[in-house]
């Protein structure tokens, strides 16, 4: 009986693995930019590999009804960056705020908030899942990150990560598999209103399949890169430099 089960598992697994190879998935899909040592590093790869194997067809994170929305949406960590430039931009209603999109794109571009609002937007009611343990549901609106990169002519063939810099002094990165996901958007609206300051005004990242610390607020600039080695300690984000797993799917 055990033999029959193992054969079935095996036969079921082969098409899955074959599909993975055929869709041209890269090593990046399964391995974080900097692999930690020891047992923790091995578990990181198992965790990320399992998540990405399950997500290989890019399923959407659950979208909820309007009636499920959490009021008021909680705020956490930095809610008003003391950065001088940020405070100046905020006083001006973010009319002078600009988002440079640079790096491995065809033609680097700098976008105003109006430029971003003119792009086709996606609205999604999703759960924000904080790594601390709390979760809240909100309706986010903004263009898909992929669409924003297209304003710069799209990411080049050697692109592997998109790095985000923020006004609260953070940087974070996601890989191209996450960039390609339809729910990966740059949100300027929460629950139909301008993004409140506590939630990252004027623009924040939404990565719906990863925990809170990936969803950085107060965006300052975006870079498309082939390596995150030159940033911080090279782990791909401040939280990862500090000791969190770079992949925040669990």
């Amino acid at each position: 009986m055990s033999q029959r089960i193992s054969r079935r598992v095996l036969l079921g697994g082969i098409p899955g693995l074959g599909g993975l190879l055929l869709t041209g998935c890269s090593r990046d899909m399964f391995v974080p930019p900097q692999v930690r040592g020891g047992l923790v590093g091995a578990a990181d790869m198992l965790t990320m590999g399992t998540n990405r194997f399950l997500q290989r067809d890019q399923p959407l994170a659950r979208e909820y009804q309007r009636s499920d929305i959490s009021h008021p949406f909680p705020t956490w960590a930095q809610t008003n960056p003391p950065d001088e430039e940020y405070q100046r931009l905020r006083r001006g209603g973010f009319t002078e705020w600009r988002l440079p999109v640079s790096g491995l794109v065809e033609r680097p571009v700098t976008l105003s908030l109006d430029d971003i609002k003119r792009l086709p937007a996606r609205t999604q009611i999703t759960a924000h899942v904080c790594e601390q343990g709390w979760s809240a549901i909100g309706e986010w609106t903004g263009p898909q990150l992929q669409r924003v990169l297209e304003e710069a002519g799209g990411a080049g063939p050697s692109a592997r990560y998109v790095v985000f810099h923020t006004y609260d002094g953070w940087y974070e990165s996601i890989d191209m598999f996450e960039v390609a996901h339809p729910q990966t958007i740059l949100a300027y609206r929460l629950n139909g209103e301008e993004l409140p300051m506590g939630n990252g005004a004027p623009l924040r990242l939404r990565v719906e399949r990863q925990c809170g610390y990936k969803n950085v607020k107060f965006l300052k600039s975006i870079e498309v890169v082939d390596s995150v080695a030159g940033y911080g300690k090279g782990a791909g984000g401040i939280s990862a430099d500090y000791g969190f797993h770079w992949f925040a799917g669990v």
Binding site: T50, N51, L54, Q55, P59, L60, A61, R62, A127, V129, G133, S135, E208, R209, Q210, C211, G249, V250
Partner: peptide, 19 residues
């Protein structure tokens, strides 16, 4: 409780009635 796994297997959320 994992946003990554529940994106692929949303039945986990229904099974327990929420994260």
């Amino acid at each position: 409780q994992s946003p990554g796994i529940t994106a692929a297997v949303p039945q986990l959320l229904d099974m327990f009635g929420g994260r």
